[in-house]
Amino acid sequence: QLNAMAHQIQEMFPQVPYHLVLQDLQLTRSVEITTDNILEGRIQVP
């Protein structure tokens, strides 16, 4: 299920590496919260 959620987020934010999306999802278990984390700059994109 997390993989499906990660792919959904990757479609919206292809610039964010998959492993970072998955790592955040493991903590949040939420597409909405992880999306917010990306938008708020809480996930550092190399």
Rank of each mutant, 00 (worst) to 15 (best):
G41M: 06
I33C: 08
T34Y: 01
L39S: 06
Q8S: 09
P17F: 04
D36E: 14
R42T: 05
I43Y: 04
T35P: 01
L2K: 02
T35V: 15
Q44K: 13
P46D: 11
P46N: 11
E11P: 03
L20Q: 07
I33T: 09
H7C: 13
M12T: 07
L22V: 08
Q23I: 10
V45Q: 09
Q44M: 11
T28K: 00
D24S: 04
N3C: 15
E11I: 14
V16E: 03
Q44C: 11
F13P: 00
P46M: 10
I38P: 00
V16R: 00
A4D: 10
R29E: 08
N37I: 01
V31F: 09
L20A: 08
F13S: 01
I38R: 00
R42V: 05
Q10E: 05
N37S: 03
D36C: 15
Y18N: 12
G41W: 03
L27Q: 11
I43L: 14
H7P: 01
I9V: 09
Q23S: 09
P46V: 11
A4L: 12
P46L: 09
M5C: 05
I9A: 00
L20Y: 06
V45F: 12
V16Q: 03
E40R: 15
Q10H: 15
R42C: 06
P46W: 06
T28Y: 04
P46R: 11
A4E: 12
H7G: 07
V45I: 13
M12H: 08
P46Q: 10
V16Y: 10
I43S: 02
I33V: 12
Q15T: 11
Y18K: 14
M12I: 09
N3R: 14
T34Q: 00
Q10R: 13
D36N: 15
Q8W: 12
I9Y: 00
N3G: 11
Q23H: 10
Q44R: 13
I33M: 12
I9L: 10
S30N: 08
Q1L: 13
I43C: 06
A6M: 06
S30T: 04
N3S: 14
R42P: 01
D24H: 01
R42H: 06
M12N: 07
H19S: 08
P14W: 04
N3H: 15
L27F: 10
E40A: 15
P14D: 03
T35K: 12
M5S: 04
L2Q: 04
V21G: 01
G41D: 05
D24C: 09
S30F: 02
I9R: 00
A6K: 01
M12V: 07
D36P: 01
P17R: 04
V16D: 05
H7R: 15
E11A: 14
L39P: 00
L20N: 05
L22P: 00
R42A: 05
E40V: 08
E40N: 15
M12P: 02
V21I: 15
V45M: 10
N37H: 08
R29F: 11
M5K: 06
D36R: 15
R42M: 06
Q1N: 13
V21H: 02
R29K: 11
Q23T: 08
L22M: 09
M12Q: 10
I43R: 02
A6Q: 03
P14M: 05
Q23M: 11
F13Q: 01
L22A: 04
P14G: 05
T28E: 03
L2H: 04
T35H: 06
H19P: 12
S30A: 04
Q44L: 12
S30P: 01
L27K: 13
F13Y: 08
I33D: 08
Q23K: 09
T34L: 02
L22K: 03
R29S: 08
Q10D: 03
E40L: 13
F13G: 00
V45D: 08
S30V: 02
Q26F: 12
P46G: 11
L22N: 00
V21N: 01
F13C: 05
I38E: 00
T28D: 02
E40I: 08
I33K: 14
A6F: 05
P17S: 06
L27A: 10
E11V: 13
I38S: 01
M12R: 13
R42Y: 05
Y18V: 15
H19I: 09
G41R: 06
N3D: 14
Y18C: 14
T28L: 01
R42D: 02
G41N: 07
Q26P: 02
T28W: 07
T28F: 04
Q8C: 11
L39M: 09
L39T: 07
L25P: 00
V16S: 03
V31H: 05
P17A: 06
M12L: 13
A4K: 12
L20P: 07
V21C: 07
T28M: 02
G41A: 05
M5E: 06
L22R: 02
S30C: 07
V21M: 04
E11D: 09
D36I: 15
S30I: 02
D36F: 12
T34H: 01
P17T: 05
E32F: 07
G41Q: 06
V16T: 05
L27H: 10
V31R: 07
N37V: 01
Q23A: 14
R42K: 09
Q15D: 15
P14Y: 02
Q8M: 14
L2R: 03
L20E: 11
P17Y: 03
A4W: 12
Q44Y: 14
Y18H: 14
P46A: 11
A6L: 08
I9F: 03
V45R: 08
E32Y: 08
P14S: 04
T28A: 02
S30Y: 03
M5Y: 08
D36S: 15
T35M: 14
P14L: 04
Q10I: 14
H7V: 10
T35E: 04
L2W: 12
V16H: 04
H7L: 13
D24I: 06
T35L: 13
N3I: 15
I33A: 13
M5W: 15
M5H: 05
S30D: 07
Q8T: 09
T34N: 00
Y18Q: 14
E11F: 09
N3L: 14
E40M: 15
Q8V: 11
Q26I: 14
T34V: 02
Q1P: 11
Q1C: 14
A6R: 01
M12D: 05
H19T: 07
I33N: 06
L25R: 00
L27C: 11
L22Y: 10
T35Y: 07
S30H: 03
V16F: 12
L20V: 10
V31P: 06
V16L: 11
N37L: 00
Q15A: 09
Q26S: 08
Q1H: 12
I9G: 00
N3P: 09
G41F: 05
I33W: 07
L2P: 04
T34P: 00
